[in-house]
Amino acid sequence: MSTFERRVRAGLQRLEAAVPEPKPPAARRPNPRRRRQVILLLAATASLLLAGSLVATAGRTPPTSAQQAKNAADEERVRDDIGQHMGNACLSRAEAVAVIRARLNALGLADWTIRSDDSTREAPCVGAAAIGDTHEVLLTPSMGGDVARALDAISAQLMQECLGKEQAVTLVSSTLTDLGVSNPKLETGGVRGVPVEYGGAYLQHIADGCYVYAGAQFDDVGRYTWYLAGP
């Protein structure tokens, strides 16, 4: 490590130490009774394996570097291929699963699984993220390519014009409705962040009394809220 790298490392260590203390992880944990059942089941399974003279550690063999390289290459292949075939279409969860399954089979990756959790349950559209290490494609919420493009255009329009709160809400709301989003949830408030492409002009526009597009966020079941920021 060079002197410069040691200097950067020391700086990163100081920065890292300054990050506010994170709260302890709050994952949903199995209840103790269920946990005991799992442990008993594991013990019984282990006993059976021992009785049958099977090697219980076979499933825990670390992947070789060749397997890891293949996982990484497969992930890239899946990401590119699914990206091409899903394109900007707004697919439901069932449609996305059908497309992804067909593409995985075509790529010779029939052993890959498709996983979905609650976050796509009410999402308007579904996207996908490939994870090579676990041989799975994770379904993720998406607002859809058409909506995202329309919002990019609105974002630019709101920066060029000066619309008040009501006009801006109407513009975004009617655009979303025209694109098939029923009862879009919009919130107006203060600045949530500054798009890097606009920089200081964004804050100046708000200071001039104009409303700007401030992004979107989905909740635990994939329902979107769109934000506008203003003075």
Binding site: G127, S142, L151, D152, G193, V194, P195, V196, Y213
Partner: peptide, 8 residues
């Protein structure tokens, strides 16, 4: 996907 525009 959560944030369609780049925020800083």
């Amino acid at each position: 996907r959560r944030r369609p525009i780049t925020l800083a």
